[in-house]
Nucleic acid binder design. Structure first.
Lengths: 198, 198, 198, 198
DNA sequence: CATGAATGAGGCTTCATTCAT
DNA sequence: AATGAATGAAGCCTCATTCAT
């Protein structure tokens, strides 16, 4: 891999672990095996490196969302939703570093990036909402989910995903996290498939 | 208020906004109207100030959880749970700064505090779990919630609370947040009160 | 003297010798016997130190001009004008460093100071013009200088002073400089006292 | 023009504007449309480029002086002297950049060039003195200038030229400069043609 | 309690220069 | 002749911290 990309990826990892202010360019350079000034051959400055890293990480994140959509066709809505969580989990495990960086930056962006971060977040959020919505619609067409307003289901599921995201990062234990995932999904699905008498 | 406490509270605010590394002692001192070395009359060093601030904030947070417990007696389980979310929301609004600091620190503690933070989090988490559990039990005793395993409900509700916490911080809009809260709770409760045929 | 002023004076000297870009803050600090960061206790940054030094030097320069005016009363116009050059010379010798800094900065200001420098120069220039003008008027009242337009005399004398200033800095030799001074003044005065037949 | 010469001329311009220390090789390269290391194909290092630029500029300057000499034959001494100033002015206007560089370097050479600069200056100065001297002699032969010592006239005229040089660089206004030039020359000439009674 | 003065450590960045291509 | 990659040196500046007052 090129030095340029090694720098970017290492930046993702270290910025994710210790934040923008907590990460020195010298650490990134050292991890890549290069002296600090070499960074400036590829990036204008620390902010530029951070932004580049952020864009890369967001792209990986959005691609993950896109793939949720692509792969949804294969199964019924319940399986698909369950898969969404499984994929989310997988994604976290595979790309913990990228994810830590994305979440950290979305929640606590360095001030100079606040606006861009908000825009990026809004995009991803909308994308994910659409994917979930189309899954819910499919569920209704399959008669797995009774006819009802879709927004509440989407909102609840998004909240669930966010909650799991948070927990993934603060529960060390795999078992606890998997239990939570199971339980949260079960409760969600029971509600979704519930036929309101009213 | 004493200078000591002004420093602590300003630390909570600024560390919450910009993180440990992003906040200079001089900023805190300036915001309080004092020169930097004055901080050392009250706190051993930056870490000490941070830890003190963290303890104060966690105490406020735990007290909030405690009060959820205390106030629960007055109403039925559904109302109580709904109130929990309302109180959580209120707490965020009233104490945004404290909360930002707590969440930031729980999710992304400075390295020197990782262990203490995890312990503190475990305590709060357990406390909150117990509160929620007792509410669920009450719900069953009231026959509002059909007999079922409690852990899944608690896990789902905790996930819901975490998800809302995250969303509170990245949705600027009050309306969107309140809609999400409503929807997420409705979906949760419908599931909780659902009588499984199986 | 306070560290603050030692820094300012050393800055005048070193900036004068080697220019803004050629002088490192560390050199100034070292010459004063202090570490570089100490500078920041007194000056916001390098530019601030430079500007402060410039103001101080300009003040010394303007004060020198003022004193030309004050001391003029005592003698006839010819003596006074000759004295002006003598004083200018004295001033250069006594305050070579200040002067080198002033001239260097007036002629080749760092870009960030260009505007302020031009304003400062305009002020001093006007001040000096007025002083010279009043001397010429005095000379006419004394009938040492025949009645004529004053502006040409002032302009010529100012050009003479500037020419001497330049030569002071590039002729190493005292003798050569003093000869030039004598000659230039003689030529000037012969012209001034000349009674045009036309 | 060759890259080599483009570099040299751009160096003259930029070193003249911002000095040796204030000009980065990268700026020069960029202005020429080449990458920095390309400079090293033609010049040993920054000092070498500077010295080369200086020699080129001094040559242009000396050639200007030479031409003063060459063209002098055509007219009477007064006209010739007046022409010298006109030509000096023209030269400044046409070759402001070269001149700025020459004057800056003569007055404030980078330390590593101090000696060479002084030698170069002495040469040019002597050359100019000779030119002026021969004009004065011509003036006497023409009986335009009464018999007198030549050195004072030469010294005065040199001082005048230096004074105008300085003023050219710090007066923005063309009108003011031209007025000063006129006045200074008039005063000079009146003195030169004056017949001393003594 | 509080501050002014000072500093060691370290961070970001620029720059002249080298070297392989 | 020219460039991309890289670096050593150095510069400006910030910051946590100390100490005498």
């Amino acid at each position: 891999m090129t030095t340029r990309n090694k720098l970017r990826d290492t930046a993702i990892r270290l910025f994710g672990e210790k934040g923008y202010d907590g990460t020195a360019l010298s650490e990134i350079a050292k991890a890549v095996g290069v002296k600090t000034p070499a960074i400036y051959a590829f990036y204008a400055n620390k902010e530029d490196l951070f932004i580049t890293a952020f864009k890369e990480a967001m792209q990986a994140y959005n691609q993950f969302i896109q793939e949720l959509h692509t792969s949804k066709v294969r199964a019924d809505a319940k399986t698909t939703l369950r898969n969404v969580l499984a994929r989310q989990y997988e994604f976290y495990v595979e790309s913990t570093e990228t994810n830590l960086f994305v979440i950290r930056t979305l929640l606590f962006p360095p001030l100079f990036l606040k606006q861009e971060v908000e825009a990026a977040f809004a995009d991803s959020d909308q994308l994910l909402s659409q994917v979930l919505e189309s899954i819910m619609v499919q569920g209704m067409e399959e008669n797995l989910i009774p006819d009802q307003k879709i927004q509440p289901l989407v909102d609840a599921f998004l909240t669930l995903m966010d909650g799991l995201a948070m927990q993934y990062f603060y529960y060390g234990s795999k078992e606890v996290f998997e239990r939570k995932l199971e339980h949260a999904f079960d409760v969600f699905w029971r509600s979704a498939e519930y036929v309101t008498t009213t």
